[in-house]
């Protein structure tokens, strides 16, 4: 029975009666307010997917570097990724600094990549497609430039962890870090 009446019904609200403009203004204001309300509701949902406070609390990590002898490396976990901390030999530093900029795919001086000459701190994730390069253990392949070698697609990194050959587009990333003392660094 209700269906039979449907075609006869008005399209929408009754129009040209006195007070229409006032009503339109009121409706617009109300709609604007409601829209603000909906926007306010969306934010907590979006925000809840950002890192939580306990995740942020682990966003920095401290590393005691006193046990790392020259020529040794350690891998530490930082924000779910490996970070390579290497105490370079003088030979390695000399090697890194003698390379002319023109030979580099992603030119950067070794001095700009370290805070203290012998300590190199880089994120151990290949800039090609995210594999972890070899070169941390003494027995690992270190690639043609005596640094790191990514086994996935054959990227070679030098002793400053700069890309020298292979598909990776840029050098291994240097994270934010600081020496809190002579034997401690804080990453992040």
């Amino acid at each position: 029975m209700a269906d039979s009446m449907a075609p006869q019904m008005a399209q929408a609200a009754p129009g040209d009666v006195p007070g229409t403009t006032k009503r339109d203004f009121l409706m617009l204001t109300t709609a604007a307010f409601a829209a603000v309300g909906v926007g306010g509701i969306v934010w907590p949902f979006v925000s809840s997917m950002a890192p939580a406070r306990d995740v942020l609390a682990l966003a920095s990590t401290e590393v005691d570097i006193s046990p790392i002898a020259a020529g040794q490396s350690v891998t530490v976990m930082w924000r779910g990724k490996p970070v390579f901390v290497r105490n370079r030999t003088e030979e390695e530093v000399r090697e890194a600094r003698s390379v002319p900029m023109s030979e580099l795919k992603d030119p950067a001086t070794d001095e700009s990549r370290v805070k203290r000459d012998n300590w190199l701190v880089v994120v151990g994730v290949c800039t090609h497609l995210g594999c972890v390069p070899l070169g941390q253990k003494p027995t690992d392949a270190k690639g043609d430039y005596n640094g790191w070698f990514c086994p996935c697609h054959g990227s070679h990194y030098d002793t400053s962890a700069r890309i020298r050959r292979g598909p990776a587009p840029s050098n291994l990333l240097v994270p934010d870090y600081a020496f809190t003392s002579d034997t401690m660094i804080r990453i992040g």
Partner: peptide
Amino acid sequence: ERIMRDVNYGWLM
């Protein structure tokens, strides 16, 4: 309790 304490607006949800 982690939702209540650490997740952004987790307590609200």
